[in-house]
Design a protein around this nucleic acid. Sequence first.
DNA 1: CAATATATGTCAGTTTGGTTGACATATTTC
DNA 2: GAAATATGTCAACCAAACTGACATATATTG
Lengths: 160, 160
Amino acid sequence: MAGQTKNKSLGINNDPEDDEGTIDFEIIELLFFAYRDFTGDPDAILEKSGFGRAHHRVVHFVNREPGMTVADLLDTLKITKQSLARVLKQLIDSGYIRQVTGPEDRRQRMLYTTTEGRALARALAEPQSRRIADALAKAGPGARETVKRFLANMMNDTVG
Amino acid sequence: MAGQTKNKSLGINNDPEDDEGTIDFEIIELLFFAYRDFTGDPDAILEKSGFGRAHHRVVHFVNREPGMTVADLLDTLKITKQSLARVLKQLIDSGYIRQVTGPEDRRQRMLYTTTEGRALARALAEPQSRRIADALAKAGPGARETVKRFLANMMNDTVG
DNA sequence: CAATATATGTCAGTTTGGTTGACATATTTC
DNA sequence: GAAATATGTCAACCAAACTGACATATATTG
């Protein structure tokens, strides 16, 4: 038995072993720490711009898919339009993102990064990209494909 | 050239190709979506308890390292003690976590999950663990070791 | 022993980024 | 012309972080 029994009368658990073997605490925690430090990379740049992580995500996805509509963006971020509104408005007012009335459906607003928005998106992505490259290089050959498959499978809408 | 030139006079970028090859947008986005869906797993359980993700993290780490002090926890979570205070107080008042005065240093409060806290931690970890197991299985043999190395290397304090 | 440092707790106010609900406007579709 | 859709906006609210200030108990140090 791995269990310790002292403190049992207090309802205290001090035995970390019981769940091992059934629950994958190791990768759960690696994901937590890896993602925490990964998202910390752009913070210095964001602070200079006066933006937060919400702005980061918006600039990122608009830059990646130029011409996406507001509805597309809401679907990607899985937030409400009221949440998006403030952040998007600030990015438009600051000149990082522009809206263009949809050519087919004039109700739509197609979103584009400006030159400055594009530069911001790139600056934010750069340290993250470097971190990934280093981590993959140290993880050995073939790591990129394995990690890609793993992460894709972790997503809800994975088909295969 | 991959660039489109229309809209240039408006300062609009609609060319997603420019950065590819230098910035690893693919894995940046896979990480975003994978982590978003991964952290969504426990939400249903948390809602029943009336807790949030902050509570989840506290119960998780206290359960994993029984007897850790408040300072340990702050260092792990990288938040301020004022942020931790409310969440920790709620968990103590609800009977999920207990504090024990440090046997050597009586200023310290060693943290332990109660039986209920342990059950909660396990319930929260279970769907995440299942998601990981499925993703690893589909990612092929050897995926676990590669993913572990990759994630560990993504952390700030990775030595090797 | 007195002074200082440390671990923790708490009060008060602020910020970011999310939520719901209601309603307005322009445009498209039926 | 009526209904549905895409977007925007107002208002209130909430979760979870932040800063700054201060209190208490205990440990360490001069």
